[in-house]
Amino acid sequence: MLGPLDPLINFILEPYFFSPFIYPGLTIGLVVLLTLIWAERKMAAKVQLRYGPLYVSKQIGGALQMIADALRFFFQEPIIPRQVDKIVFLATPALALTVTVLPFIFIPAAPSYVGVAVSYSLPLVLALGALIPVVIILMAWGANNKFTLVGGIREAFMTVGYEVALFISAFAAALYYKTLDLSVMVEKQASLGLPGIIINPIAGFVFFVAMLMASSKLPFDIVEGEQEIVAGPFTEYSGILYGLVMGASYLYLYVLMLVFVEMFLSGWLPVIHGLGSIYPALGGVMLFVKTYILLLFAVFLRGVYGRYRLDQALSLGWRRLVPLSLIAALWSFGLLIAGV
């Protein structure tokens, strides 16, 4: 029996629509954004013996605070300073967000459920992510302010600091799976019965740290370095433009975390084997739960850490993470040769 809405529902559930727009894409991305920032503030508050956001919707612990904040962003006047390059200034926040959400097309959400199935999804996602710093540097240049310029330079430095380690550690893991396709990686982990983090813990660790650097979460929020350069590249932004650039960094963390879970924590497979085959959509839920828990941990670090200095973060990247990721690659290679 065909109801009048069925074609529409079918269309929505098609992977090429559902994946980028609903899950894991924009809609859930927005939910993650709103709840994650709230959770970050709540957790930091708890560690600091405070309440955090509370008075907007008191019964549910102020969970609607972020919606209130988003509304405020919408109604706040976006000030465009006189010295900025207007087109760049206005275009870059939107561009940053676009580049951040593009990878959702290639990230599988459940077994064989992906927006555009390509066998190079891992490098594609990482490469799209690597475009974000370019946009941020453009933004910093366009805003034409001393603080944004310093912020832009910091962004450039940080990019070379983490990007190498991020790519090598990802490929080190991929080397063992002998594929660059995220879906196949999850299947490999299923057939091995082990999550990737146990097969190659070093790669997992390096990827996680590089991920924190990439999304400039503490202890690596150097680009925004409030205490020195006010808000780095975002100093001149206000209103919804600021909301966009701030949201982009959280969304990028979400993107990378999905990749991390699929590469190292066996993606949509439940911790206990065999549960996943019962109902395929359960896989998507599992993936989300794992990702979200790790996201919570990543933002919880705000309550524990201060900020590294720029050169220290760079030397961490080059002197520790890059060698470690090379060791991880050797490790994978060794495992392959040993035929484990």
Partner: peptide
């Protein structure tokens, strides 16, 4: 000193 390196926990704790 804590908030100068963005360590908000030290900031809140010592003021608390």
């Amino acid at each position: 000193t804590g908030i100068f390196i963005n360590h908000s926990t030290m900031y809140m704790w010592s003021f608390g």
